[in-house]
Design a protein around this nucleic acid. Structure first.
Lengths: 187, 187
DNA sequence: GTCATAGGTTCAGTGAATGAACTTACTGAG
DNA sequence: CTCAGTAAGTTCATTCACTGAACCTATGAC
């Protein structure tokens, strides 16, 4: 019952309950993004995915879980749901300023995952303004400091195996910026 | 079924299955540290917790889950199990070099958690050699670059509420270095 | 009218998490 | 020698969340 000299993330809680007694910022963060699929949804959002169906196809996540995660992330202020057309009514989910702060988490997690033995050459990230590959936590060694998300360029690594039926994976084959909306016109 | 332009973390897998088809380093990392409790176990290990019983009391984690997590983390090369006394046989779990690489993940996660509205003043981290508070991802603005774990000083923040029955939470009331073993002598 | 699409909800089955009780192997006190 | 205690587990019934499939709603195209 005592987490990081406090309580929380315990007692059968899975979503954002038990907030009043939280003190450890890691446990509090995990209450929001610690569930299965959640960080992968945020990753896709950083890559520019915005629509329910695109998350669904690209992640291969069960529909009910995706709906629950989008709702929880919206309630937590990580995503913002906004209407992009009226007829038929269609909403998209866009990262808030708060949600964009998760980039350094995903960046360091990806950098660590790369060190797992047997990992293939992954996707690459560079500072678009100077071409320098990003450091472990999204910093640019040339310019110094963290690189703004809009200046991060994603390049597909070797060994990608895009699913022709998935518009998102096709779109991500091109070099692109983080947050740049993925356009998924009908095939 | 398609994650980060590849497959994995899907199809009912929960632990390290499905490795052959993995390409996205974030999904691969989450296969190892993405389950409930796992990152909190690693956090405690970074704080110097090494023994089964100390994890148990400090985290409030179910015994069976703790045993499963310690075994999985050991199998993944994040922790190393080693005997510290022969009679009775007792083992402790220590972070490997690979596991210590998760510090930047936990640091950025904690830094993000701190930005959640309503979060109280959390634990503080400084570069022990110069006293500079650590940056978002564990870097020192004064000295430049990432601070080695052994040079990171943890200070209890305000509002801590240690459990007198928990030797770990008592030990963490003092300023200390990361990885410095928590000594839990009998009360 | 019929079909297709986007964005969901509902529901039964399964697998993982939970908490309590039990086990093993030893130590130290009386 | 016996008894209590400790560290590190295992076992088990219950509960809960994840899964996959089916269904629902609103709309526009043909």
């Amino acid at each position: 019952m005592n987490l990081c000299l406090e309580r929380g993330y315990s007692e059968g809680m899975a979503l954002g309950k038990d907030y009043a007694t939280q003190e450890c910022s890691i446990a509090r963060a995990l209450e929001i993004v610690g569930e299965r699929w959640t960080l992968l949804v945020v990753r896709d959002a950083l890559y520019g995915v915005r629509r329910y169906n695109d998350f669904l196809v690209h992640l291969g996540i069960p529909r009910a879980v995706l709906a629950a995660r989008l709702q929880a992330l919206t309630a937590a202020g990580v995503l913002e749901k906004r209407r992009y057309q009226e007829s038929p009514p269609r909403d998209e989910y866009v990262l808030t300023e708060h949600g964009r702060g998760l980039w350094s988490v995903l960046r360091s997690l990806g950098a660590w995952g790369r060190t797992i033995p047997g990992t293939l050459p992954p996707r690459e990230f560079r500072h678009a303004l100077c071409g320098t590959p990003l450091g472990v936590v999204g910093e640019c060694a040339t310019c110094g400091g963290l690189v703004p998300l809009e200046e991060v360029e994603m390049l597909p690594g070797a060994g990608l195996d895009p699913d022709p039926a998935d518009p998102v994976s096709r779109a991500l084959l091109e070099p692109r910026r983080l947050l740049q909306p993925v356009v998924t016109e009908p095939v």
